[in-house]
């Protein structure tokens, strides 16, 4: 009785509205991978001839007239381009930024690990703090650091584990090339930075 509506994995709209989302290219790829039948119905098959046919069909179906349709199409292209540019910029920003994992000594044998620079990657800091807390059985919270930026602070010496976890997290997001820098602020107050690539 109920209808199951498929939503696009990229823009979250029902696929027929993908053309208005400005992410059409990626939407198309997603749809052809996940719901080939729907893809064929909406965009025709891969051949050029059929694509042309689909376009003419669309024109015939549409009532707003060729001129307006053309204008609409142009506007949509513009939106798409804007969106693409924005995404590219964001990606570049993501790639150029880096995650910093810092170990600081507190008293004798106690350390805290602070992770900053995550906010660029759409990671829910609070959730991450919660996972760390349950994973390492330590206290873990989100706080603001000296530069007024949010960082995750973990009580305990768990730097290596955190590093591997962050790597896997970034890999999941498809951002393998993001730099993760670890800083070990020893008690001597002479930060020995290990330049960790990748």
């Amino acid at each position: 009785m109920l209808r199951e509506v498929i939503y696009c994995g990229i823009c979250s709209y029902p696929p027929e509205y993908c053309e208005f989302s400005g992410k059409l290219k990626r939407c198309k790829v997603w749809l052809s991978e996940n719901h080939a039948d729907l893809y064929a119905k909406l965009y025709g098959t891969d051949d050029n001839t059929q694509e042309v046919e689909a376009v003419t069909n669309k024109l015939a179906e549409s009532s707003i007239g060729e001129a307006r349709e053309e204008k609409l199409e142009k506007d949509l292209l513009k939106i798409q381009k804007k969106q693409e540019n924005r995404e590219q910029r964001e990606l570049a920003k993501k790639l150029s930024s880096k995650v910093i994992i810092k170990r600081e000594a507190r008293t004798k044998r106690k350390f805290i690990v602070a992770i900053s620079g995550l906010e660029v990657f759409d990671i829910d800091m609070k959730k991450l703090a919660k996972t760390f807390a349950s994973r390492f059985a330590t206290g873990c919270s989100v706080s603001k650091n000296a530069e007024k930026k949010e960082e995750v602070v973990i009580q305990g010496d768990v730097m290596d584990e955190v590093e591997t976890y962050i790597h896997s997290l970034l890999e999941e997001k498809g951002l393998k090339d993001v730099k993760v820098e670890t800083i070990d602020a020893k008690k001597k107050k002479k930060p020995a930075a290990e330049g960790a690539a990748k």
Partner: peptide, 19 residues
């Protein structure tokens, strides 16, 4: 609405308005 569209008063707009 998507799951059960028949139940509501519905109107339709033209293609030019979607954007």
């Amino acid at each position: 609405v998507h799951k059960f569209p028949e139940a509501y008063p519905t109107v339709q707009v033209d293609r030019g308005a979607i954007k």
